[in-house]
Design a protein around this nucleic acid. Structure first.
Lengths: 359, 359
DNA sequence: ATGAAAGCGCTAACAG
DNA sequence: CTGTTAGCGCTTTCAT
C-alpha cells in the first residue's frame, strides 16, 4: 500500500523548477531568496502533493536533528511526569521532539543511554538524573553538547540548570511551623548523594539556625532513600531519639508518608502528636489522611523552563550557562496544627495530659 | 571543542580497507561476508577510535530509523507513566528509542503529532489515546505504518492492541462484593466516548445480569469524565436516585475518590454506609482514606506487551494483527466491607441501627 | 572476500 | 533570483 513518500524532487519536477529551489522555498530561512510568485506556486504544489520534509535527510546535511534527549531517573516517581510533560509540550511547540529515556536510577544505563542518544545526533540533552556526582555531565560538556539539568543542581557553574528554590521551600515550611508555635522541629532528609537531598539538608541547617531553632544532631536524620519505608525508619529514629519534637520537616512527600506509618506504629497520630510537612506536593497527596501540608514545586514550570533554556543554547551554543531558580509555595493542608500549651510535648508513650490528670 | 565525529570512512582509512567493508563488518547481518580476521581487526580499530554509527545516515539509506512514536493523551494521568515506562524499557532493550508525544487529549493535536512523527520516519507507532472513534487509526493503517494500540480497544479487528481484560476486572469487583453479601450494587462508569469507559460499562451490564443483579437504569450512572468532580456528581445522582444501594462499582479510581467526596457531602462514610470499588489501582491510591479496594491493572505489562507487539510487526509488517488481553487482579483494601443484616440498607439520613435502638 | 560507484533526501556552495 | 554540483554518512548493488 504505502506509496513512496513525496520527495522534494517530486515537487521540483511538478513545479518545473530545480530541487534546490524547492528546498529554498520550503525553508523559512531561505524563502527570501526566491521570488514571491514562484514561492507561492511551489508551496501550493508541495501542499497539493502532500509533501512532508524528511528531517533525517535534512539533518544529515545540516547536522541538526531537531531531536532532544530527555533522560529521567525513574518515570514512576510522580515528580517526573509533570516535568516531562512541560518539556515535551515546549519542545513540540518549537518544532523539536523529545526522545524519552528512563535509566531506572542506574548509572551504567545512564551512561549507555547518553551515548546512544548522542550517536543519534540529538541537538541537546535534558538531564533529570539526581546524583550529585555524575561523570555523564563532564562527558556531555566535553563533547560540546548543549545540556540542561532539571530538578537537580551541580557544583560547577558552567552548566545550565533549572531548579526549585529549595532554601525558600524549607523556609516556607519552617516559618509555617514556627508560626503555629512550634519550636522543637526535627528534620527528616533524603540521601545526601542526591542533589535535592543535599540541597534541602543544607537549607534546613541554614534556615533553622537563622530562625533560632536549636540544631543538634539528634533532630536530624537523613533517610537512605526517598521512599516510604526509608522515611518510616528515619522517623522512628528521630521519634526515639529522646528529643521531644512537636514537628518534623520532611524533605519529600514519600518520607512524610513514612512518617505517618511511623506514628501509626507507635500508636500516635498526625497532626495531634506530631506536625509533619512534606516536599514536592505530588499528585493526590492531598487525598491521604491527613492531607499533607507540603511545599509545592512547580514541576510543569521546571520542565518548560528547562526546555526553553535548552532551545536557547541550541540556537546559540556559545551562550553562557544560565541557572533558573523557580519559587515554590506552601500547600496548607491538614498535617500541621497549632501547638497549644496543653498538648505541648510529644511524649514517647501515650501519656496525655488528660490521662495524667486522672492519677 | 567538539571534534568531528568519527565516521565509517575514518575507520576505513585507518584499517586500510574500503568504507563498504567497514560497513559490512559493523552490520551484524553482513558480518559473514567479511573474513573473520579482517573483521576482528576493523572492529578493534573502530572500537579504538570510538566509532559510533550514525543512525540518521544509515536510516536514510535503509528506511529504518529505529525510532518509535509513543502518543499519550495525558502523561499527568497516573495510569500512563507506568505504561510509558514499560514501553520505553522494552524498546530501548531492542535498540529502539521512544519519541514521546503528549496530545493533551486534543484530537487536533493528536492528528498533527502523528503526521509529524510520520514525517520523521518512525518505524512504528504506539497509540494510547482513548477515544473509540479515531480517524488517526485509519490514517495510520492506510499508510502502512506498523501500529499498536495500548490500553484501548477498537472495533476493527485488523489492528493490534494490548488491553486489560476489563470484563474480568468488573467480574472480580462484582464477585468480591457479592461475596461480602451485597446484592444492591450500582455502577458509576466513565464517558462512553472512551474505549475503557465503554468496555467497562458493557462488562458491568453483562456480568451483573449473569450474576443475577437487578440492572435498572437508576443504578447506573456514567460520569462525564474520568475525574473526581465528575465522579462526585455521578455518585450524588446514584445516591439520590432512591435506590438503596449498599455498594457501587466505579470504573476508575478517580471516580471512586469522587464517591468519597459525595459521601462526605452527605455526611456518610465509606465503607460504613457504602462499599466502593475502583479500577486501575493507581499509585498511592492505597494511601487514601479509606484505602481503596480496586481492580489492579498491570500497566507496566501493558507497555511491555505493546512494545513487543510493535517490534514484531516492524520485523514482519505483513504479520496478522494480534490482540493481547492482560489479566487484572483485585487489590483488597478498606473501601469495601461485609454487609451484615442490621446495617443492610443505606438510609438517606444517618439513622443508624444503634441510634434507633436507643429510642 | 573486497573495492568501486551510486544514491537515500536534502542543503549549501558556487555559478550564472 | 535560479540552476548546477557536491556531499552529509551510510548501505548496497555490481564488479572483480
Amino acid at each position: 500500500m504505502s506509496r513512496r513518500r513525496i520527495t522534494i524532487k517530486d515537487v521540483a519536477t511538478r513545479s518545473g523548477v530545480h530541487a534546490s529551489t524547492v528546498s529554498r522555498v520550503l525553508n523559512p530561512e531561505t524563502r527570501g531568496m526566491v521570488s514571491e510568485a514562484l514561492a507561492q506556486k511551489v508551496l501550493a504544489i508541495a501542499e497539493g502533493l502532500g509533501y512532508r520534509r524528511n528531517p533525517l535527510a535534512s539533518g544529515l546535511r545540516t547536522r541538526r536533528s531537531y531531536m532532544v534527549g530527555v533522560l529521567i531517573p525513574d518515570l514512576s516517581n510522580p515528580v517526573f511526569p509533570p516535568i516531562v510533560r512541560g518539556i515535551e509540550r515546549t519542545l513540540s511547540a518549537n518544532g523539536f521532539i523529545a526522545i524519552l529515556a528512563d535509566c531506572a536510577n542506574n548509572e551504567q544505563t545512564e551512561q549507555a543511554m547518553v551515548e546512544n542518544l548522542q550517536s543519534r545526533q540529538i541537538d541537546g540533552l535534558i538531564l533529570a538524573t539526581a546524583h550529585r556526582k555524575d561523570p555523564v555531565i563532564e562527558a556531555c560538556l566535553a563533547s560540546g553538547m548543549p545540556l540542561v539539568l532539571v530538578n537537580r543542581s551541580v557544583a560547577r557553574a558552567d552548566v545550565s540548570a533549572v531548579v526549585n528554590d529549595d532554601e525558600l521551600g524549607i523556609r516556607l515550611a519552617l516559618e509555617h511551623l514556627t508560626g503555629l508555635g512550634h519550636t522543637r522541629i526535627g528534620y527528616v532528609g533524603g540521601p545526601q548523594s542526591t542533589s535535592t537531598g543535599y540541597d534541602r539538608y543544607r537549607a534546613f541547617l541554614k534556615v533553622a539556625r537563622r530562625i533560632g531553632i536549636a540544631v543538634t544532631p539528634e533532630i536530624i536524620v537523613n533517610a537512605e532513600a526517598f521512599s516510604e519505608p526509608a522515611g518510616k525508619q528515619a522517623f522512628l529514629r528521630i521519634l526515639e531519639s529522646g528529643k521531644e519534637l512537636s514537628a518534623v520537616v520532611a524533605a519529600n512527600d514519600l518520607l512524610a508518608l513514612g512518617g505517618y506509618d511511623a506514628l501509626a506504629a507507635r500508636g500516635q497520630r498526625c497532626p495531634d502528636d506530631l506536625s509533619i510537612t512534606g516536599f514536592n506536593d505530588m499528585p493526590f497527596i492531598d487525598r491521604c489522611q491527613p492531607p499533607l501540608t507540603t511545599v509545592h514545586i512547580p514541576h510543569d514550570g521546571l520542565g518548560v523552563q528547562a526546555a526553553l533554556l535548552l532551545l536557547e543554547r541550541i540556537a546559540d551554543p556559545d551562550a553562557r550557562a544560565r541557572r533558573v531558580r523557580l519559587k515554590p509555595s506552601l500547600a496548607l493542608r491538614g498535617s500541621t496544627r497549632r501547638l497549644d500549651a496543653t498538648a505541648a510535648a510529644l511524649k514517647p508513650r501515650p501519656a496525655r495530659p488528660a490521662a495524667r490528670a486522672r492519677t
